[in-house]
Design a protein around this nucleic acid. Sequence first.
RNA 1: UGUCCUGUGGUGUAAUUGGCAACACGUCUGACUCUGGAUCAGAAGAGUUCAGGUUCGAGCCCUGACAGGACAACCA
Length: 565
Amino acid sequence: MSAKETIGKGISEKSNFIHQIIEKDLSEGKNQGRVLTRFPPEPNGYLHIGHAKSICLNFGTALKYGGVTNLRFDDTNPQKEEDEYVRSIMEDVRWLGFDWGDRLYYASDHFGKLYEFALKLIREGKAYVDDQDAATISNQKGTPTRPGTESPFRNRSVEENLRLFKAMKDGGFDEGHCVLRAKIDMSSPNMHMRDPILYRIMKTPHHRTGDQWVIYPMYDFAHGQCDFWEGITHSLCTLEFEVHRPLYDWFIDQLKEGDYRPQQIEFARLNLTYTVMSKRKLLELVRDKYVNGWDDPRMPTISGMRRRGYTPASIRNFAERVGVTKVEGISDVTLLEHSVREDLNKTARRVMGVLNPLKVIITNYPDNKTEKLEAINNPEDPDAGTREVPFGRELYIERDDFMENPSGKFFRLAPGREVRLRYAYFITCNEVVRDASGNVTALLCTYDPASRGGNSPDGRKVKATIHWISAPHALEAEVRLYDRLFTVEDLSEEKERDFKEFLNPESLVILPRSYVEPSLKDAAPLSHWQFERVGYFNVDPDSGPGRLVFNRTVALKDSWSKEKK
RNA sequence: UGUCCUGUGGUGUAAUUGGCAACACGUCUGACUCUGGAUCAGAAGAGUUCAGGUUCGAGCCCUGACAGGACAACCA
């Protein structure tokens, strides 16, 4: 199956300013009609929903215009990058439904050419070796409003620079002893043009090149050239690189021979309410154990969302919905959640699960009798068929579905009130059983045998239908309820306080003893289910033989919870 | 006292490139329903940051303000 079929129609149908630029380029015959994009993560962390937006944009755009997309790892800093991240990134991109085919690249593939290019700049008098330390160079940079000053080493001879740079490469200097800089303009209003550093010495083994190199190019010196060598036509990146573009263009000007040059177009990164998106902060949450790893279902990482039960289609649809612009804003997580419900509503099979059980005894139902009742697997999908659920004298219902003194618009079970048990019978609550301290421990009810299957022969109506599970058949399960990780909508507004102060203490609530119906006995890890009237859940990989663990992906929309407030 | 970027309902985006501001999410009604889900029907909500200008006509063009953001890592 091709990527396009996998993704299905819908992806990239909505246009945006980048598509408009590309359509104009295409109409003018630019790049011989070629569209080649790239997704260039640094393998120093796990991908998050913000990356998902970029992945959908890059791969989706190429797909839309008959082009392809390169996956390129920007691995120019061996101190931060690891193979574990490379693997997780590839897994996540594939899981999202995209395919880079054989176009897998690493910035480190281009180290040789980058070195040659640096040599060329030196020969042309456009780069020099600076022996000053980091602090000095930084001070000489000036500030955005004050011009910088030139390094005393700025005017070394070409020969000396060549000799020094080769010595850097050959390990002749310690880390930090010197760097290679471009000779551009120390008084440029654009800080990035003030003799940027091209190469630094780093005696750290690289995850791919080992100890072959002891000098490594800076990102700014690598990225644009990698695009160029790979033949990228449209280099889509986030807004903060806008000010870098003149520098990238400067490098390409020194490099290019014909008309071709990659075109960088910047778009706004994704921000989400109640969420942090910086890799640094996510790493901190993982490293200091505020969450249980990169794939903790509360994390906005792709692996976290996968474990939480979000689907690739829901994430793609979300990316499509938020669109692509240059306006920096914050998208509402509820839009993401809507996309998740929308997809799961169509595909997730319905089952019954009781989160907080309350025992119900049907006093007029025969002891030891069990019957099988037919239940629909998915009303949105007739092909999903039906299943049988066991029914008996003792059941569990949801504690929230009973209220001793029903208030306002509560129309579920209460003393003297009749409700329907989904797919089963009408029952009426007659008596409340309590323990010594007065807590409700069970309900004594009677059922109407004529209402079997949930229909009343006399046309009698009940206000509510509730879910239930036959007590002797119930499967015990651990249910993990997730809520937003942070308590404030927009973390970027809270500059004075540390983001961890806003962690939601109730972001994870574990219900150790919930019950689910027996059909879930062999539910596959990561499979999606709707617990009727409650929410969407999926099987956590922590499950094993005899142990079921469910994650609440997202709750169902619940107008009663609004009523309560 | 720099350079660059951006200002459209609560949020995210549109507006055939100068022609009565549209859509989605959310919100609120109502219908239907064996999920207080889904679905369906409808409503409220912006006159496009502000002030000028060009024009028969401006969210789109021009000028000037104002507001927000990015840029001063040997990070990416």
